[in-house]
């Protein structure tokens, strides 16, 4: 049962393996080119585990020490995790000590896979979510390590491979759309984000969309309760 669950989790994370090792290595190489040895990308990947923030911190490390800026930027970029955590409260519960790691490792891709995947009856669902978290974490950290070590020797060039992430989210979105009874959330989320992207720009649109979505759901919740 355990090995079956692991195998199933591995299959589901193969696209993420391609994406994370590639992007992680890109990050490691970027760190190398910025003058940091391999320990920096590896440890940052392992302790922060948030792709875009790691690139931002790499830049900040080259400037003047500014702890408040580090805090502020990290919080803004990663505040979306708050919403993932609210969504996973009940799913991650009852997993004991593993829950700590599952929450620690909850990135966009792990969240999306763990939320969306319908597991067959011979697979332990909680164990599956743990393995997905573990594998995705391992892919990203080893990618960053490889990039940091090999940074001076190789340059990875396969323009377009990062589309694997877009394809993954498209497919998860499609699965959600096929299986759901009401399309209210999916369509509202899509349109709302599209509009906020134009109105507030790339820096803020994720957070603004998520907050607006919570407000919209709050109104909808009141209407449903009132009925």
């Amino acid at each position: 049962m355990k090995s079956q669950t692991f195998k199933f989790a591995f299959q589901k994370t193969i696209p993420i393996m391609a994406g994370f090792i590639f992007l992680g290595a890109t990050y490691g190489i970027y760190m190398h080119q910025s003058g940091f040895n391999f320990l920096y990308p590896t440890l940052m990947a392992a302790t922060i585990f948030g792709g875009s923030v790691e690139f931002v911190i790499a830049n900040l490390l080259l400037g003047k020490f500014n702890p408040w800026l580090v805090f502020f930027l990290t919080f803004i970029i990663n505040s979306r995790h708050l919403f993932y955590a609210i969504s996973m409260l009940s799913k991650y519960r009852g997993t004991g000590r593993k829950q700590i790691f599952m929450v620690f490792g909850m990135c966009d891709e792990t969240f999306a896979i763990n939320y969306s995947t319908k597991v067959p009856s011979n697979i332990d669902h909680k164990e599956f979510m743990f393995y997905v978290t573990l594998l995705d974490y391992a892919y990203w950290v080893s990618g960053a390590f490889l990039g940091g070590v090999l940074g001076g020797l190789i340059t990875i060039k396969l323009p377009g491979l990062d589309f694997v992430m877009t394809a993954l989210f498209l497919v998860l979105f499609a699965n959600q759309f096929i299986n759901e009874k009401s399309h209210f959330s999916t369509i509202t989320g899509l349109l709302l984000t599209f509009i906020t992207l134009f109105v507030v720009g790339t820096q803020w649109f994720l957070l603004v969309s998520l907050i607006l979505m919570v407000i919209i759901l709050r109104i909808r919740y009141h209407r449903e309760v009132a009925k």
């Binding site: 999306a112 989210f169 989320g189 899509l190 984000t193 599209f194 992207l197 969309s209 979505m213 919570v214």
Partner: peptide
């Protein structure tokens, strides 16, 4: 109801 919206948000992202 939030996770389905997040999947849409991530596609736009």
């Amino acid at each position: 109801y939030l996770p389905p919206a997040i999947l849409g948000i991530l596609v736009v992202y």
